[in-house]
């Protein structure tokens, strides 16, 4: 499957797809999208890269083990749940800053929660796929 066209295409597609994934993640609160879909799209980007260049290349390019995303994402989600408690609100109640940002809207704890979900989904999907395809690609 290591055709030159695919290789070249995936090199350019990877950053584009990742950008798209982040875009989907951030717009999730107002339009279709969100952490789950964003994470899945990002993983598809990496899988595509692995198809074109081989798993070893992808892993080298990633520079970190994908499973490391899982605890990081879980921690972000959990912390975003605990932040409201610091100002005396119940666990996981939403809190927002008053600043308005284009695309994202207002920045608040649910956004960070979604980012945590995003990271966890990337970590999980890549861990599963890379583990299973170890030695094939």
């Amino acid at each position: 499957m290591k055709s030159i066209i695919l290789k070249t295409a995936s090199t350019y597609l990877l950053p584009l797809l990742l950008l798209f994934a982040v875009f989907i993640l951030l717009r999730g609160h107002y339009n279709p999208g969100g952490g789950f879909v964003g994470g899945l799209i990002a993983s598809i980007a990496f899988v595509l890269h692995a198809f074109a260049h081989g798993l070893v290349e992808t892993k080298k390019m990633l520079r970190f083990v994908p499973s490391a995303c899982i605890p990081v994402g879980l921690a972000i989600s959990l912390i975003s749940g605990f932040v409201p408690m610091a100002i005396g609100r119940p666990f996981m109640s939403g809190e927002w800053l008053s600043v308005q940002v284009p695309i994202i809207g207002s920045i608040g704890t649910p956004l960070f929660f979604d980012i945590g979900v995003f990271l966890v989904v990337i970590g999980i999907t890549l861990t599963i796929l890379f583990t299973i395809s170890d030695g094939i690609l």
Partner: peptide, 20 residues
């Protein structure tokens, strides 16, 4: 919850604990 995509708002806010 300051969100307009209700499904996403439910996932990350109203029912955030489930998602966790």
């Amino acid at each position: 919850a300051k969100g307009k995509n209700i499904v996403n708002v439910m996932l990350v806010d109203f029912r955030g604990f489930d998602t966790m």
